[in-house]
């Protein structure tokens, strides 16, 4: 599994994730009632700038290069009119941003497959969307209980994760 050639400006896998971010962000804006030039222009501009920045050599560019795309998608999300579909699109755009962020085109070897890493954020997003549909709105107590529940869940998962994570050192070395 060879890494991409150093001369390639944009990694094809990054390009797919970038296209997904641009498409989902623009769709989010269009469905959310944002004017078409803004809904399409801001995400596309952010993604284009992020692509250019991330393709530059040096260790800093891939670390902070996603900021323009994050800002563009965030701006569209803030301008969009809330609805369940718009929320789902915003969540999907967030997952696509995570996918894009996982890419390091200049690494010599590809990292592991990023899709398993999206499982937990995707599940939590699904829970949040279901909660938005099923739970009664307008009650602060429900919101507080939801937040507490999520925090407790995260702590339990973290604690269990500590126990699940077996050391990679062979047994005879311990």
């Amino acid at each position: 599994m060879n890494g991409p050639p150093r001369s390639a400006i944009v990694d094809p896998r990054s390009l797919r994730a970038a296209a997904a971010v641009a498409f989902l962000s623009a769709l989010l804006g269009v469905v959310g009632g944002v004017s078409l030039p803004v809904a399409v222009g801001i995400p596309l501009g952010g993604v284009a700038i992020a692509l250019v920045v991330r393709s530059r050599p040096g260790p800093v560019a891939p670390e902070y290069g996603l900021l323009p795309a994050l800002a563009g998608t965030g701006a569209v999300a803030a301008l969009a009119t809330p609805s369940l579909l718009v929320g789902a699109l915003a969540g999907a755009a967030g997952l696509a941003l995570l996918l894009w962020n996982a890419e390091s085109p200049r690494d010599l070897v590809r990292g592991s497959d990023p899709f398993p890493g999206l499982l937990v954020p995707g599940l939590c997003l699904a829970v949040a969307l279901l909660a938005a549909v099923a739970l009664p709105a307008g009650r602060a107590a429900v919101g507080a209980a939801g937040v507490t529940l999520v925090v407790a869940f995260a702590i339990v998962v973290w604690a269990l994760g500590e126990a699940w994570r077996d050391p990679e050192v062979p047994a005879k070395a311990i």
């Binding site: 803030a78 954020p121 939590c124």
Partner: peptide, 25 residues
């Protein structure tokens, strides 16, 4: 809507922590 966008961004690092092995050969 921004909150739904924020959910994957905030939970990504938490998911990454869950994948980390404790020790390495």
């Amino acid at each position: 809507v921004p909150l739904f966008l924020a959910v994957p961004l905030l939970l990504g690092p938490v998911a990454a922590l869950l994948a980390a092995a404790r020790a390495a050969a």
